[in-house]
Structure formats: structure tokens, C-alpha cells
Design a protein around this nucleic acid. Structure first.
Length: 690
DNA sequence: GTCCATAGGGTCCGG
DNA sequence: CCCTATGGAC
């Protein structure tokens, strides 16, 4: 391990961040500035220069993917590092699980060591059961999962009534009791209980450093987790980028970076230089920042950005297959090419076209074990077998219509499993998949006469083998190992049949803008840059800010080549024809001049619009055509900041005269004396512009 | 139990 | 915008 060699590769900002010794430090890492490199170097520096054992570091990430990347890259730099030294490395939830398992006195709260972790889906099932048993009345029960997640913070803060004034809070209380009875933790419980116990005392656990990745994505309970860890006299180092907050609908806020700074009295440092993107790409992306000057690049200007117009998604898909083939012919591997879109549904046309033309591609979507009935059932059997208190899993295992108990026996096998397979009982007997399969006598449930028998049997056997391998790797007994496998798969998901997107495979990647975060490609296409898609039609102006950041994230994935496209005649109802105003926000000199093509297309489009408008489409007129004439684009440029903000006034029949505070194609917000700020949908409000 | 007006959600998707 | 769950009217 040559630390010095590591250091030579870092720039001065990166180096300063690595060696910083403040009690709390927040690193504002601009997009593409090498934050993961700094994180890894920091860990190595602490370990080899400050002699801090890896075991005394807590390294928190937001996603499993990020956790894996950090562990992998660390292992490359330091071959001597072992898995068990990195127990404190992982997502907030998996680290909380580790603390509850090994460091915190959960029995003081009535939990037992064999506890299990359940998914949100399972909590909903439990909730529906309790609802019936206690004849509670719950509104929107088809959206119970969402309601439980969204209203839980209010409940925990002691709010009296749920949003729809039903029995939801009573249900939450009952759920709490039932989960304790069944010895189960939800994802949120992992953090909540850990927080509670940490606050009471740090127990026999005293890390020396906390290192946090993508800190801007944390929500309230994760903030608390960091605070409580830090309360134990630990040094704190976090990296993040306020410009990449795209999950605020999930509880993170764009101000969390600054909240954290104030709360921890943290020293702020920055990584200002982008190494990833060409000058043109960076300059274009900067148009979507609050403060466009804050980003600087290290590369030359490079190729200009390309803006293309297509008739519709179908035509575009044909074009993209040809274009990508050409790029590939020039020697660019498929893995360096990506297509981003706003909605999951937009991948369909592309998938068809690519498949037809034999272009290797992968779509980012996840398939879980829940989609395979036999495995879903088998995991219930295992969950019941590994947690004797899990009556829900037991009921589902025995009562399943297809696979449930056919003859007496399974119930007893489940009950006795933890004894039969305990370390003492097994002694040195070798356990293989068949042994577990035969113990449960699963042929009775899978029925050899069934058409799917062979396939299902194999799926189950593979699953058992994986569980055994997991237990052996963790050096745990079968029962404990299986239990940990089930817990980690609740948190991590079990990838079956098809792994999730394999970044190393040589294929074109298709994904949503959200899914693109953290990745990079030499060639990026962002499709459907129409109003109604990018940006999505949003309810308020805060959501609109987030759409801008999302587009920013997408653009900054591109290293060398960025192409943006929009539809003349989109099929979906909510999508407006013609270029999104986001495209107009990019200065012309950064765009490859295809203006002629544009104008031609625009003329065609205008003709179409005219034809359409004779069929009376007042909304389309307002959204599309008024815009086309450049009427509202003037105010748009003003609201982007650089020009003098001129004061414009409106009159409303009820509120009187007010001053426009912000506006876009659809909405206008105005402030009225005595009434404050009000928002209006332009198409419906009868505002008089003064 | 059925009819109808109305409010609210819709997309993105982590652990 | 379009869809649907909800709850009052009957």
C-alpha cells in the first residue's frame, strides 16, 4: 500500500479534504469532481497515516450500489482488507442492522436476538390483517404503503390526527405492538430503534470516524442517526452536492446540506473541478444551476451539444438505432452509450427497435423474488422456520393456495427447524441443498406431476444453496446464517434470473434520469425534452426546481457527446408538442448548428398546429402555440435570473391587484396584499395582465 | 346498494 | 389534463 502514490494523483482540493482533521467537515463536491476517489483516499489515509483500524470507521452510503463500489475500490487499493473489518461500511440501514445485532442492548426494549427485517410490503400485509381483526376504518387502503410511509413521521412526533382523520394512527400503534410480538423490524424501525438506543448511551461501541457519501440525499431520520453517532465523540466527514438533490419527494431537502453544516458546526470544503465532461457539456449543464458560475471544468470545449427533433417516439427509435450503430462502428463500445428518459414507460419503443436491429441493450428495472411465486412462498417457509415468532410468515407458508400444506407435517417441520439445524445438532454433518429440501419434504408441496415442477425445484434448490453459501461465508451456523440471509435480502433485494443492470456488460444502457445518478458514459442521449415530460408538469415551483436539477444530473453524465431530442407530435396526452423551454435555456453557441433543420421542422409543425387549432383545442393553443410565438419566453429568461427583474402586475376579481412573483407556461404565481401568494393555472384563471 | 359530485393523485423509486 | 376512491344523497 503506497499512500504517497495515491496522493500524487489527487489535486490540491482533493488532497486538502483527505488530510483535513476538523471534528466535522462537509465536502461540497461538485458534479464529476472525484468525490468517491476522495472518500477512498480518506479511508486509506486514516487507516495508514493515522493508524485508525477499519473497524473503528462507520462509512455510510445511501444505496447498496454505492456501498459495494466503495468496498470494492478499497479492496483494490488495499489487498489486505477483509470483509469482517468493514462491518461498519454500508447503507444507513445495513449499518443500523449491524449495530442492533452486535452493539446495542435491544433486549431492554423487548426484542430478542433472533429478530428479522421485513419489507414495506410485508408491513402492509400485517397492517391489513390488523385492520380486519380490529375493524378499523382506513381510507385509501390500496395506498396503505404510501400512507404508512408518509404519515409516520407525523405520528412519531405525536400528532393527534392522520391526514384523512381515520384510524391510521391507531393502526400504527397496533402495528408497533404486533411487530414487537413477532420480533420484527421495518426499515424505519432499524433506524428509529438504533437512534433511541444510541441516544441513551453509546454502549460498548466507539467508532472514531463517521464518513458519509451523498449526504444531500439523507432524510430526517438519517440526519438523526448521524447526529447520534456523532454524539459519541466521533469525527465526522461527509461529501455531497446540493445541486444533485433529486429525491426530495422521498424526504431529503435541498437545504439539508446547510442544516447539517450549522448543526455540526462543520467546516465546509469544496471540490470545484469537474473532470468528467467536455467544456460545452459543462457550460450547457451550468444553465440549470441556481448559481451558474460555481462549476468549472478541466477539459477543452469539445464537440457542441446536438439538439434533434423527431416526429414521434417511434421515428426517434428508428433514428437512434441507426445512430448508435454508426457510433459503434467508429469503435465506441456499447457500454459507453446511454439513453435517458423521464418516465419508465418511454423505454418501450426503444427496446423494440433495438431488439429488432440486434443492438445489445439493458433496461434498468428491477425484478425481485416476489415475481416468482414459488420462491416467494419458499421464503415464507424459511422466514417462519428462522423466526419462531413470525406467525404471519407461517400462516402464508401453510395457507398458500398453490404450495401450502397438503398433508400434515410442514407445520411441525417449520417448528422444529431451528433445533434440528442448530450447530449442536448438526455437529460436522455437511448440509447441502438437497438436505434442506428433503427435510421439508418439499416434493409434497411442489408436486412432481406439475408442469413447472422441474423448474421450480431447481429454483428452490438454487436458493437454498445460496443461503448455505452465505452462512458459510459469514462463518455462521445454518439457522443464524439463513436468518441473516433473509434480513440482508430484505434490505438488499435478491437478484434472481436476471441481475440488475450490469455496468460492465457491453450493452447500451436505457434508464430514467433518476437511475442515471452516479454513472458516466462517453455518449449520452436524453430523449423527450418536451414540456410535460422534461420538465414534467408539476404542481408547484419547488417541484419544478427539482426537475431542473434532474435534467442537470442527466446532462452531466456525458463525457464527450450529448444529444437532446424532442417530439413534434408526441402520443401521450400530457406531453406538449415542440421543444421544452429547457432547450431554449441553452445558449446557441454551445449547440451544433442545425438551425435550418429546426426551422423547417418548426414550419411543418406550425402548419400542423394551425390545422389542429381549427378543430378548437384551447389548451394546446395556450401551451404550445402561444409559446411558439415567443410570447412567454421573454418572461422565462427574466425568471432565470440574469436580467433586471421587471415588476409585472395582475388583477384578480377576488384578490385585487398583485405582483407576479414567478411564472412558467402553465402557472403564474402572484402576491396580493392581504392575501399573500396565490398560484393560478393560466388556462383557467381569469387574470387580467396589467 | 347505487348514483354522482368532488377532491386528490398521477411520475421519479432508495432501504 | 384524466382517473378513481370516497362519501353524502337517495
Amino acid at each position: 500500500m503506497n499512500l504517497e502514490q495515491e496522493f500524487i494523483r489527487l489535486n490540491e482540493y482533493q488532497r486538502a479534504a483527505v488530510v483535513d482533521e476538523s471534528d466535522a467537515c462537509l465536502l461540497n463536491a461538485k458534479v464529476g469532481s472525484g468525490k468517491t476517489t476522495v472518500l477512498i483516499s480518506k479511508i486509506l489515509y486514516l487507516h495508514y497515516h493515522e493508524q485508525i483500524p477499519y473497524e473503528d470507521m462507520i462509512v455510510l452510503t445511501f444505496t447498496n450500489k454505492a456501498a459495494d463500489e466503495i468496498k470494492e475500490r478499497l479492496a483494490v487499493q488495499d489487498e489486505s482488507v477483509r470483509e469482517e473489518q468493514m462491518k461498519g461500511f454500508g447503507t444507513f440501514h445495513s449499518v443500523a442492522l449491524y449495530l442492533l445485532r452486535e452493539k446495542l442492548p435491544i433486549e431492554t426494549l423487548g426484542y430478542e436476538p433472533g429478530f428479522t427485517v421485513i419489507t414495506p410490503e410485508e408491513e402492509v400485509e400485517l397492517g391489513l390483517l390488523l385492520m380486519d381483526e380490529n375493524s378499523l376504518s382506513i381510507k385509501y387502503k390500496n395506498r396503505l404503503k404510501k400512507r404508512l410511509e408518509q404519515e409516520r413521521p407525523a405520528y412519531e412526533q405525536g400528532k393527534k390526527e392522520p391526514r384523512y382523520k381515520d384510524d391510521l394512527f391507531r393502526l400504527m400503534r397496533l402495528l408497533g405492538q404486533e411487530k414487537l410480538r413477532q420480533n420484527k423490524f421495518t426499515f424505519r424501525d432499524l433506524l428509529r430503534v438504533t437512534n433511541y438506543l444510541l441516544k441513551k448511551g453509546c454502549a460498548n461501541f466507539s467508532p472514531r470516524w463517521i464518513i458519509v457519501d451523498e449526504v444531500q440525499d439523507s432524510d430526517g431520520i438519517q440526519m438523526e442517526f448521524m447526529e447520534n453517532l456523532k454524539g459519541c465523540g466521533v469525527k465526522f466527514f461527509a461529501v455531497g452536492d446540493p445541486n444533485q438533490v433529486i429525491y426530495s419527494w422521498r424526504g431529503s431537502s435541498s437545504s439539508i446540506f446547510y442544516q447539517l453544516k450549522a448543526q455540526f458546526g462543520a467546516k465546509e470544503m469544496t471540490l470545484p473541478i469537474n473532470y468528467r465532461s467536455s467544456g460545452a457539456i459543462l457550460a450547457a449543464a451550468s444553465c440549470f444551476l441556481q448559481n451558474p458560475d460555481e462549476l468549472s471544468g478541466s477539459r477543452g470545449r469539445g464537440e457542441r451539444i446536438v439538439i434533434k427533433n423527431h416526429y414521434n417516439a417511434f421515428v426517434e427509435a428508428q433514428y437512434l438505432t441507426e445512430e448508435i450503430k454508426q457510433i459503434h462502428k467508429k469503435g465506441i463500445p456499447y457500454r459507453e452509450i446511454a439513453v435517458f428518459y423521464r418516465l419508465q414507460s418511454q423505454s418501450e419503443q426503444l427496446e423494440k427497435a433495438f431488439a429488432k436491429e440486434g443492438i445489445a441493450f439493458e433496461v434498468s428495472m428491477k425484478k425481485t423474488v416476489q415475481d416468482v411465486p414459488v420462491l416467494s412462498w419458499f421464503l415464507c417457509v424459511m422466514r417462519a422456520a428462522c423466526n419462531e415468532k413470525d406467525v404471519l410468515a407461517e400462516r402464508k407458508a401453510l395457507g398458500d393456495k398453490t404450495y401450502g400444506e397438503k398433508q400434515e407435517g410442514l407445520a411441525g417441520k417449520i417448528k422444529r427447524f431451528s433445533v434440528e439445524f442448530s450447530a449442536e445438532n448438526l455437529e460436522n454433518k455437511i448440509v447441502d441443498g438437497e438436505a434442506v429440501y428433503d427435510y421439508f419434504d418439499l416434493d409434497r408441496n411442489l408436486r412432481p406431476t406439475s408442469a413447472k415442477y422441474e423448474q421450480e425445484r431447481q429454483l428452490v434448490l438454487d436458493m437454498i444453496e445460496r443461503m448455505i453459501a452465505f452462512a458459510l461465508e459469514k462463518k455462521l451456523g445454518m439457522v443464524e446464517g439463513f436468518r441473516e440471509f433473509l434480513n440482508s435480502s430484505a434490505l438488499y433485494g435478491i437478484q434472481i434470473l436476471k441481475k440488475e443492470v450490469d455496468m460492465k456488460a457491453d450493452s447500451v444502457k436505457l434508464m430514467t434520469l433518476h437511475a442515471s445518478k452516479g454513472l458516466e458514459f462517453t455518449h449520452v442521449f436524453i430523449i423527450g425534452v418536451n414540456y410535460g415530460l422534461i420538465p414534467l408538469q408539476t404542481k408547484d415551483f419547488e417541484e419544478e426546481d427539482e426537475e431542473r436539477r434532474l435534467f442537470f444530473v442527466g446532462m452531466t453524465r456525458a463525457k464527450d457527446y450529448l444529444e437532446l431530442s424532442y417530439y413534434t407530435s408526441p402520443e401521450q396526452v400530457r406531453v406538449m408538442p415542440g421543444e421544452s423551454r429547457y432547450l431554449r435555456m441553452i445558449p446557441e453557441e454551445l449547440v451544433q448548428s442545425e438551425k435550418k433543420v429546426h426551422e423547417k421542422v418548426d414550419l411543418q409543425k406550425m402548419r400542423k398546429e394551425v390545422e389542429k387549432s381549427s378543430m378548437v383545442q384551447p389548451l394546446a393553443m395556450l401551451f404550445g402555440v402561444a409559446d411558439e410565438q415567443g410570447k412567454s419566453s421573454l418572461s422565462e429568461r427574466n425568471s432565470m435570473g440574469n436580467g433586471e427583474p421587471e415588476e409585472r402586475k395582475v388583477r384578480h376579481s377576488k384578490y385585487g391587484v398583485g405582483i407576479i412573483t414567478s411564472e412558467d407556461e402553465t402557472m403564474v404565481e402572484a402576491e396580493f396584499e392581504n392575501y399573500g401568494k396565490k398560484q393560478f393555472v393560466k388556462a383557467f384563471s381569469e387574470l387580467e395582465y396589467l
